[in-house]
């Protein structure tokens, strides 16, 4: 049974025998697992979405699953109590600039570290990877002091500039990808006398487009969802990002949970759209490999 599961699960060449067979035990097991995972992920979101349409009264006393009265009050509060529309634009600008710029810088560095041999390369890579191990709490105050000295506090640049230098994670990730790209391509390019810059832009950049889109998405989400950064580096309500702006609904003693829930769902919408837009590109990008 399990061998069937694996058989159907692993990448199989098209084969008439296999495609004709229907509903083997392995298929059923595999599909059941896929459906269970699907349900486990989807249900909490649906449940939260329903809860966000409850009146505050329903929320505290509600015992049933569905609200007794559907209301948009919570969503109205999200947009009227704080300048949410403005915050969404702030967030898009910060997350967009930081993620695209940062991943591009990382790709160039990753190429150097994967495909160009130079003295101290291994050391440089370890120095890069080591930064992933430093707890952010240690960096917070020195970083803030630098941003303050540069007069960037309360501007989006305090959140963008540090990321434009690339991230250790992205460099590591892209380097791993470039290592698996067969080297016949650049051997040929060297023969043709290309500079390493043109080798990167003409050969490697197109080949890592897929992983790069994945990273841009992931980094976009990271920046969009960052809570502490905006709260520390930004002061005015008008400069806030949506994720940080929602904290205005969290009191020391009393928190407006239904509003917070509605706000969290509002914050999820832009990332979902970005993800849907890029989804096709990620899939295509990931499917392209050096030899195809």
């Amino acid at each position: 049974m399990t061998s069937k599961l694996i058989q159907s699960a692993t990448h199989m060449p098209p084969d008439s025998n296999q495609t004709v067979r229907k509903f083997s035990l392995g298929d059923i097991t595999a599909n059941t697992i896929l459906v269970v995972l699907f349900v486990v992920i989807v249900v909490p979101f649906i449940w939260s979405a329903i809860a966000s349409f409850q009146t505050p009264l329903d929320f505290v006393s509600g015992k049933g699953f569905l609200p007794s009265e559907w209301t948009l009050t919570n969503y109205e509060k999200v947009f009227t109590d704080i300048p949410m529309t403005r915050m969404i634009f702030n967030g898009l600008f910060i997350a967009g600039t930081a993620s695209i710029g940062g991943v591009f810088a990382s790709a160039i560095a990753a190429f150097c570290l994967a495909k160009v041999s130079f003295k101290g390369r291994a050391l440089y890579l370890s120095i890069v990877i080591l930064t992933m191990m430093i707890p952010p709490a240690v960096l917070l105050i020195p970083f803030y002091t630098i941003m303050y000295a540069l007069s960037l506090i309360d501007t989006p640049w305090a959140l963008i500039l540090p990321h434009l230098t690339g991230s250790a994670f992205a460099i590591f990730f892209l380097r791993q990808h470039m290592l698996t790209i067969p080297h016949e391509l650049h051997d040929a390019a060297i023969m043709d006398g290309c500079s390493i810059a043109s080798i990167f832009f003409r050969i490697y950049l197109p080949l890592v487009k897929g992983p790069m889109s994945v990273l841009i998405i992931i980094n976009f989400m990271l920046h969009w969802n960052d809570l502490l950064g905006p709260l520390i580096y930004l002061n005015s309500v008008e400069q806030m990002t949506p994720t940080a702006g929602l904290s205005f609904f969290r009191g020391q003693f009393a928190t407006e949970y239904p509003v917070l829930l509605a706000g969290s769902l509002v914050c999820i919408v832009p990332t979902t759209i970005v993800f849907l837009l890029f989804n096709r590109q990620i899939r295509h990008g990931l499917l392209i490999t050096g030899l195809k």
Partner: peptide
């Protein structure tokens, strides 16, 4: 399937933590 499985990663830890606090 790919979209749904990956989806929680795109949400903020704060939003998810809050959601699970309810759960």
């Amino acid at each position: 399937l790919r979209f749904v499985y990956f989806y929680p990663t795109t949400c903020s830890v704060v939003a998810l933590g809050l959601m699970w606090l309810f759960i």
